[in-house]
Each structure stands twice: as C-alpha cells, then as structure tokens.
Design a protein around this nucleic acid. Structure first.
Lengths: 213, 213
DNA sequence: TAGATTGTTAATCGATTAACAATC
DNA sequence: TAGATTGTTAATCGATTAACAATC
C-alpha cells in the first residue's frame, strides 16, 4: 500500500537530477515556454534524452508522444514528487565561515530546507542573529532540537569536534546529518549521514587535472 | 610508455577514497602505529576490506601477506600517487560567504591546493586581504591568471554570473573549474568542470529522509 | 498520414563485493 | 608450521545508454 506500489528502487542520482530538471522547467515556465522534449531538457542540463526519460519514468508518465512534456505540468509533477511544499526544519551546528555561508545561502529560503536553529561554542557569537537565525550555545542543542522537533542537522564544526557533536545530535533525536567536517562519522543504525568533504572534492578534481582524463 | 603501462582506468571514486586512506594513515603514523590491515583501515573509513585492497591494487602491491600494510610506507606511497608534494595554484572568483569559507578553509594550506588569487566585483572588497590573499577586481582575471600560470579555478559567484565567469576563465587559460554556482556550466572541449551544488545535495538528502531509505 | 517523441525493455558499462589461491 | 592477510579474478549489483515499438 501507499504510493510505492511498484517497488523498483529509485537511485539517489535520479532524485538529485530531478532537482535539476525542476530548476530548469521552473526557469522555462517563467519565460513562457510551453513544451519541452527530453532531448531539449537533456541538452540544457548536460544529460542525455534517455536519461531524462528514464529518470521521469520512475514516477509516472508525464509526457506526450510526438510533442514532449508540458513545462508547467512537469514542474508541478516534480514539485509534488520532491515535496517542495513541505518545509523541512534544519539545525546548523558550527557557525564558522562555512556555517555562515550555508546559513546565508539564498537557496535555502526558496526551497524545502529551512534552518531554524544555529549553535556555536564561541561566546562572542552566541546571542547574535545571523540571517534571522539566533545563534545559541551548543549546550542548548538537545533542548532546542526536541522542542522544535528537528530531524535534520548540518555539522560545520572543526574536525575534532564533529563526532562529539554528531553523538549529541543523534541523542537529541536528529535522524539525518549532513556533515561537512572531514571525518567519516559513525552513528547508530537508522541515522542517515552524508559526508560532504569539500577539501577532498577539490583535491580529487585537481588530481585528475594533473593526470589527464 | 610512461607510468600508465597497464591501462586499467582508475575510477574517480577510487582516487577520492585514496585521499581518505592517506588522511587515516597519516593520523595513524602520528600515534606510532606501525602496521594496519585492509580490514582495520576499512573499518576506520567505513569501507570494506575488499574495497581498500582493490583501490590500492590499481597502483601497486604495497602490502605484506599475513601482516598488512606498513603505515608509514602506505602513507608515503599514497602521497606519491596523489602528488601531495606538488602544489597546485588556484584562483577563486567570488569572495562571498562561500568563497571566504573556502579561502579560509584550513585544509588548503596543508594540502596540494593553494589559492593564490581571489577576485570579486564588489568595490568594497577589492584591495582587501583575506587569509593572506589579495582580493582583486574581476577585470584583472585574465592578466593575473596568465601571469601566475593558474590552471585551476573555483567559482563561487551567484548563479547569474557563473557562465560568464567560466567563459572568462577558460579564455584566460584555466583548464579546470570547480563550480559552486547552481548551474551546469558549458565549456569548450578539454576543459574539466565539476559542479558542486550544495543546495541540491542538501535537498537530495532531505528527500531521502522524508521517504525512508 | 508522416514525423516526432515518448515509455520501456534490452544491452552495455562500470564499480563494488565475494571468494580464494598465493604467500608472508 | 599454522594463521593471517594480501592481490586478483570472478560474480554481483546497479546505473547509464541504446534501441525501438507504441502513440500522439
């Protein structure tokens, strides 16, 4: 029962691309383009037509043979699939350079993610307001997270503190962590963690530059 | 000829993990641990023993049957493979929140990437020094990049300016771009681009939170 | 209708995992 | 030697690409 009657698992890469399609058709609808083919949409997003159709095919049949997809129709479908209407409350721990960047990242406001709490250990920062979010003491994490029923947190603290912070977050009820500290966090079963290591991404790329393709 | 006699292509994911192994064995060597097995190294990096051995196997035979890998030996080999001794000069375009974060990211100083030039359009920022790097006018990009022979650039400008900046960079001789603006850049053949869309990564993760695993 | 484009199946590609003989 | 662990091949898994009948 439920919406997942046909259980072919959707790859994470597909979901990720769906956000790209959504962005694209949202732009197209603004400039009054009515219809787009998978080939055109693929060209605009640097993907193949087959990939576009395959990705959409996981969720239904949105196109019309011979003419393609309705731009506004596809936009609405994608919004429904990706749940853009729901807003996800997020806590941010570590208001350093990167934390501030994420906090002010314009993307958040117009999307499904809303940073509603920020924490730091630095007394000079605590009590201040950044982008409309109050920076609180790390000691209040547990209370605030429970109070506000926050299930997703972003960790932007230094390497040495990341695991400790993660433990605290999980203990407080967080189920999903996006970790920007360059460690692989270990958390209890059921908690979802994604490590985003910017330094490593940069280094990997630069390796491929040096060594050809 | 050259080092790539056996041409089995190394996956980018492998290179990426090599940086993780390097970080781990560097830590281990600091605390005087002499030897580590693929199973132990895998456990510490949340990877399987088979994965560790496979990854290393692309580059040679560094282990000893029955006892594992020499920590310092593996560290040195990985450093050699990843070219940590060489320092790659990098230009950063867009000194906003995220740009500042990357600029100050401690990771850079101790790794192979060195931001040697930063650019912005904001007159209030131009001429200032951030983390020891002079912020220059975007109009000087071409000249500085050629002068300093910079082949890698990081784009942290707003969405609308990214493609324009990319064109300018490529024209100036940049061969590799790490793009943090949420667009898929189109560049001429031969130029390597990696798009890192933090907002999209966040959204993708939060989708999976909402929808179970 | 003829042309265009979908949705979907099959083929391909590539990466991860399992298994095990070789070996210290 | 016996036990442990490697390096590597084969099996599996999963995602991308190609192909094409169905259809507007």
């Amino acid at each position: 029962m439920g919406k997942n009657e046909n259980k072919k698992k959707v790859p994470e890469t597909t979901i990720s691309r769906l956000f790209v399609y959504l962005r694209e058709v949202t732009e197209l609808s603004k400039i009054k383009i009515k219809t787009i083919s998978s080939a055109e949409l693929g060209e605009r997003t640097n993907l193949s037509d087959a990939q576009v159709r395959k990705d959409l095919g996981y969720f239904g049949q949105f196109g019309v043979s011979g003419s393609g997809y309705s731009v506004s129709g596809l936009r609405d479908e994608l919004q429904k699939i990706l749940g853009k209407d729901k807003t996800q409350k997020v806590a941010l721990v570590g208001v350093g350079h990167l934390g501030s960047a994420l906090l002010s990242y314009s993307g958040f406001s117009k999307h499904r993610l809303d940073i509603v709490a920020a924490f730091d250990t630095d007394i000079r920062k605590i009590g201040k307001n950044l982008e409309g979010v109050l920076i609180q003491s790390i000691q209040e994490v547990a209370q605030v997270i429970k109070e506000k029923k926050i299930f997703l947190a972003i960790i932007t603290v230094p390497l040495g503190e990341a695991q400790e912070v993660a433990d605290l977050l999980v203990e407080s009820g967080v189920e999903c962590i996006l970790n920007f500290a360059p460690v692989s966090l270990s958390v209890s079963e059921g908690v979802k963690v994604k490590d985003v290591d910017l330094s490593r991404e940069l280094e990997t790329l630069s390796y491929f530059l040096d060594n050809g393709d």
